[in-house]
């Protein structure tokens, strides 16, 4: 597609430039594909979060589908947190905590703030 645009724009690239561009494109696509494959599965179901060890907090400030990753990354640094899933549409984060460890609400609120969001009520 990119090359079609170049042709439409009348830009003729020489062989070296084409090689350069092709290499860059392949690197970008490769990195994206590899990192995409290594991401944790998105198919988290509600069932994963049922039970006494699930905390749910309101989170304000998430405004896009890509916002949850930064928050979940910070949640993962809290001792006792097994997993978390944030939703920009529901404006919540669900946190699965280990039954063996005590997870402080303030730690979760602090992680939300470090993600540049604002914690609301604890819903569960």
């Amino acid at each position: 597609m990119i090359f079609t645009i170049f042709r439409m724009r009348g830009i003729i690239l020489n062989t070296d430039q084409l090689k350069y561009l092709t290499a860059i494109t392949l690197i970008i696509v490769g990195v994206m594909a590899l990192t995409g494959c290594s991401s944790k599965p998105q198919a988290q179901t509600e069932a994963n979060f049922e039970g006494e060890d699930v905390l749910v907090f309101e989170v304000f400030g998430m405004d896009c589908p890509g916002c949850h990753g930064g928050l979940e990354k910070l949640m993962a640094t809290i001792p006792g947190v097994i997993d978390s899933k944030a939703s920009w549409e529901e404006k919540t984060v669900k946190v699965i905590v280990s039954e063996d460890e005590v997870v402080n609400n303030d730690d979760i609120r602090n992680a939300i703030e470090r993600a540049n969001f604002t914690p609301g009520e604890r819903l569960k």
Partner: peptide
């Protein structure tokens, strides 16, 4: 104006 989360 919205800076990314820490560690992002």
């Amino acid at each position: 104006g919205l800076t990314p989360p820490e560690g992002r």
